[in-house]
């Protein structure tokens, strides 16, 4: 009960912090902070699948692409309100996730990793093939460009909704079923958890969150949806973020998202190497270091700290 209270306080403090933060930031920094929010949503989604249900995916960039193209296409052809495209992206990618989840029932481990990897490589090729409708490699733009303040507000509101949604989903019956599937499929089945339903549900929810993140991703890149923005690298980035945040726990997501959104920007200005190559060197080295030092990510660190305090 006490731990639960600490959790509410922490979430409320975070909410207040991010609500007040834009007043102290410049326009440029508000744009970057909005990116943190969209990565946060994507990491939440991946965590539901990898951390809670034990199904690996390297295909989340594909779902982000589907979400992103939903926003760009709807806005381009039908002038849909941009905020209204977010739930639409959620719904469409949810269905896509469930559809992918069905064949994924037969695969596990590395084979599932390959299947999702295949999806991540294949989906960015589709806009190239159907370039009349999707603008090909040049991409397609939404009907208006949003400002950074608008983006910040929408992205962080969406992140808050996504966080509460995931939290509520995972703390009850469904979350328990997910964890049971992760820990032992046989034990879960024998206690009445239907694997097929919960695995596909996890895929759907996870993909849906990635889709919303993809919509925001497109809005954050001047409303342009381009195939090469959604390469496998994006999936790997989210996976890194989820691992840094700590799989199987929600408490580290903000730090994980900040890690992948901010580190490349910060390290680009590192005096040591400078330029874009230096950015990769610093980012890669950090990823390895964090994994060596924090095997369970930031969430694991928080857990260890709270245990230390309980003992003291």
């Amino acid at each position: 009960m006490k731990r639960g209270l600490a959790g509410y306080v922490a979430v409320a403090a975070c909410a207040v912090f991010f609500a007040l933060l834009p007043f102290t930031l410049s326009d440029y920094h508000r744009g970057i902070a909005a990116q943190v929010a969209l990565y946060l949503i994507a990491i939440l989604g991946l965590n539901v699948l990898v951390g809670y249900t034990g199904q690996i995916s390297i295909g989340h960039s594909a779902f982000m692409a589907i979400g992103g193209y939903t926003t760009a296409l709807m806005s381009h052809y039908h002038h849909t309100n941009l905020v209204a495209t977010l739930p639409l992206a959620f719904a469409i990618t949810f269905v896509c996730g469930v559809l992918l989840g069905l064949p994924a029932l037969r695969l596990s481990g590395v084979y599932l990793a390959l299947a999702t990897f295949a999806l991540a490589v294949s989906v960015p090729q589709l806009p190239l093939k159907f370039s009349k409708f999707t603008g090909g490699s040049a991409g397609i733009s939404a009907n208006r460009i949003v400002g950074n303040t608008w983006l910040y507000e929408v992205a962080w509101s969406a992140a808050a909704v996504a966080f509460v949604f995931t939290w509520l989903l995972l703390r009850g019956r469904i979350g328990r079923a997910f964890r049971a599937v992760r820990d032992s499929e046989v034990a879960a089945t024998s206690s009445g958890v239907t694997l097929a339903i919960y695995k596909t549900l996890a895929f759907g929810v996870s993909a849906a969150l990635a889709g919303v993140a993809g919509s925001l991703f497109v809005l954050a890149t001047n409303g342009f949806a381009q195939p090469n923005e959604f390469s496998v690298t994006l999936s790997l980035k989210i996976l890194i973020g989820a691992a840094v945040a700590g799989l199987g726990s929600l408490w580290g997501v903000v730090i994980g998202a900040a890690f992948i959104a901010l580190l490349p920007t910060i390290s680009a200005s590192a005096p040591l190497i400078g330029s874009t190559h230096g950015q990769d060197v610093v980012f890669g080295a950090f990823v390895i270091l964090v994994m060596l030092l924090l095997p369970n990510g930031v969430a694991g660190l928080l857990l260890r700290l709270s245990r230390l305090r309980a003992r003291a």
Binding site: S275, T276, H277, D280, M291
Partner: peptide, 24 residues
């Protein structure tokens, strides 16, 4: 000896690091 996912993430980190070093 920790977990498969930890090793995978480390190899992804290596991917980025080697790429950066070669370009540098």
């Amino acid at each position: 000896h920790r977990s498969v996912i930890a090793v995978v993430i480390v190899t992804v980190g290596l991917f980025i690091l080697i790429d950066g070093l070669v370009e540098w």
